[in-house]
């Protein structure tokens, strides 16, 4: 019960604090809340955009969650998804003529492989060299951003555009977009994300590998005594986490832009940490939390125009306050103690 109640209370607390901030700024919280609701769910297009933003967050949330079950902190989803998207776009730019069923599959595999490799590096460094994955993944995010910028500005530069982006891929690469969202780019990546969440649930709770991952996360020394190769499990967990983040490339490149656009991600990787935390690292929870954060991201988009003082960055404030609320262990154990007496 506490498992479900705590995130919900944290969301309520975070939203209340955030709307309190808008109230101090001189904007009626009720008015802001109505704009948020309408912006996120008001029309089929709005709802479609909410789903479009939620899709990458499902992937990055799962990525952080899998690493977390192995006792690792994947701050590197941002770099992994950047290289995943870049790899998918590179395949499409290099072989634009490939036909439909083969092309998206090949680009998708490229995205997964790129993310997996980029995730495995900090996993290997932690397992074999003992250096902490938090710093390594932050560093690798910068490296990935630099590599992506080099490829988008030099190697595969789009000659027809002033924007920093790669050459467009062939038409055969684009995946199906659903028609009933009024033009919002909701593609087959969404069912792929939900299906992946189910597969990750199967992996973590129904397979031997999943058991080993969770065992390493709960107690590395106990897992080692039980004969588990903890180093191998950690590398594998980070590789899987990287592959999951790499999947973001499918929705963005194959389902939306048709190319790699530098800076396309509004920090999906970092938001994935929040999504995993709020979803308590459970795949179903991750999907729910990703929907909430997608709705916040879309809902706040209209605030610049429709209010006097509030800006769309309110979504960051709200998300930050929700994360802080859910992470305050001391607060929750204090409430639990009060509840018992």
């Amino acid at each position: 019960m506490r498992k479900i109640l705590q995130p919900i209370l944290a969301v309520v607390l975070g939203l209340t604090l955030g709307l309190g901030v808008t109230w101090i700024a001189g904007e009626s919280p009720w008015h802001v809340l109505r704009i948020l609701g309408r912006g996120a769910f008001g029309s089929s297009y709005d709802f479609g955009m909410t789903l479009f933003y939620a899709t990458p967050l499902i992937f990055t949330g799962l990525s952080v969650a899998v690493a977390f079950h192995a006792g690792l902190f994947n701050i590197g989803a941002e770099g992994q998804l950047t290289l995943g998207a870049l790899a998918a776009a590179a395949v499409g730019a290099l072989w634009p003529g490939l036909p439909a069923p083969l092309a998206p599959v090949l680009a998708g595999v490229a995205a997964i492989v790129a993310g997996t490799c980029w995730g495995a590096i900090p996993g290997w460094l932690r397992a074999r060299r003992g250096s902490h994955e938090v710093i390594n993944t932050i560093m690798l995010n910068f490296v990935a951003a630099g590599l992506a910028s080099y490829v988008a500005l030099y190697l595969l530069k789009n000659p027809d555009s002033q924007n920093p982006e790669t050459r467009p891929m062939g038409a055969g690469y684009l995946i199906h977009q659903f028609g009933f969202f009024g033009g919002a780019p909701v593609s087959a990546a969404l069912p792929l994300a939900v299906g992946t969440a189910f597969l990750i649930w199967m992996l973590l709770w129904k397979t031997a590998l999943g058991f080993e991952i969770r065992a390493v996360g709960q107690s590395e020394s106990a897992a080692r005594v039980a004969g588990i190769d903890t180093g191998k499990i950690r590398i594998l967990a980070m590789a899987i986490a990287g592959g999951l983040a790499g999947l973001v490339g499918i929705g963005e490149v194959l389902g939306n832009a048709g190319k790699f656009r530098l800076g396309f991600s509004p920090d999906y990787g970092f938001l994935g940490i929040a999504v995993a935390l709020l979803g308590r690292n459970q795949p179903l929870g991750v999907v729910a939390a990703a929907l909430l954060f997608g709705a916040l991201h879309k809902g706040t988009a209209d605030l610049d125009m429709e209010t006097e003082h509030v800006t769309r960055e309110l979504s960051l404030v709200l998300q930050a306050l929700i994360i802080l609320s859910v992470s305050a262990e001391g607060l929750w154990s204090w409430m639990k103690k009060r509840g018992q007496t």
């Binding site: 901030v21 309110l314 979504s315 404030v317 994360i323 802080l324 001391g330």
Partner: peptide, 28 residues
């Protein structure tokens, strides 16, 4: 320190808070 939140999670949240608050205050 007081509420024993995970330091990495709380740190990321503080960064988001600053990224969100500064344009907001700027507009105000």
């Amino acid at each position: 320190i007081r509420l024993r939140a995970n330091q990495i999670v709380a740190g990321m949240a503080i960064n988001m808070l600053a990224m969100g608050l500064t344009p907001f205050l700027c507009k105000t």
